[in-house]
Nucleic acid binder design. Structure first.
Lengths: 148, 148
DNA sequence: GGCAATTAAGTTGTGCACAATCTAATTATA
DNA sequence: TATAATTAGATTGTGCACAACTTAATTGCC
């Protein structure tokens, strides 16, 4: 298998730069919503499922509390979300949308459309690319599980 | 085109998590070399082309001086690289390998092999995936250039 | 030759990303 | 039922990633 030490021949490098460059594309689109890219991902989860606890949120985004805690704090300062401690299990903290956070969804609806337009990609290619990325993750997880 | 606001349906999310998870795979492999993932990318460039100036290096990795300056400082502390100011143009700084930095290459040769093994991917799929990622970047750049 | 515009690096400040550690609540089990 | 093990979340520290700004060298243009 590919063993050349050349930068451009490493899938890790292509993935790393592609991810960075796509995130860069989002920045100006998200700026009017006062969101960073990671904050946008958290909001996506909440618009899908309100009142989710931080643990589930972190699992969904593969982020630990060290990243999420300060990020959520900033979303609270923006008045987009609020935290409520769960009554049944006092360790858990539920995150829910404020009215402003819910209202923001309408503006956010346009984000994927804008991005698709910028990428200039047809549906079939888009799906093929998504499947590739999901497959890469599946292979990574398969290895992780072999190791446990 | 894809306009659902669901997390998993966004190519950006798949790219973002795939990149993070692949980087995570590298961490234990690079730890014995005392390198982070980004530092490894810099070393890859230097093993390919020694005595490169910081500007070119940054272009190659899509990193600006705000990221590279402190990163290179840490590589210097590890005694893997050294900086020399170019004589023809005093603004430029050339980065070159120290003996330890050159010697490290031998150990690094095994990294791509290990990663391929962990990913458990055949050559044809690997190449197809690389091309998809390069295509995504090409589309992003095409948009960037339309905007200039 | 003189001066504005550009360029290369570096610095500062903000926000991830993650390891390691801590606290408090819950669950398991001896 | 004590107490050990586990779990959720927060905190601390390190290292990217990038915008905005600074400094110094070079280039362009009159």
């Amino acid at each position: 298998m590919k063993s050349s030490l050349t930068l451009e021949h490493q899938i890790c490098f292509q993935l790393y730069t592609a991810s960075k460059e796509l995130t860069r594309l989002y920045r100006p689109i998200l700026a009017p919503l006062n969101l960073t890219y990671s904050q946008y991902l958290v909001m996506l989860v909440l618009w899908e499922e309100d009142n989710i606890d931080l643990k589930q949120l972190g699992d969904r985004l593969t982020l630990d509390s060290g990243t999420l805690s300060p990020l959520v704090k900033r979303l609270m300062q923006l008045d987009y979300v609020e935290k409520v401690r769960a009554t049944d299990d006092e360790r858990r903290v539920l995150l829910s949308l404020t009215p402003s956070g819910s209202a923001l969804r309408e503006q956010a609806e346009e984000v994927p459309l804008k991005v698709s337009g910028m990428l200039n990609i047809d549906e079939a290619t888009y799906i093929a690319y998504m499947e590739m990325l999901i497959d890469i993750k599946a292979r990574l997880r398969a290895f992780g599980e072999r190791e446990e």
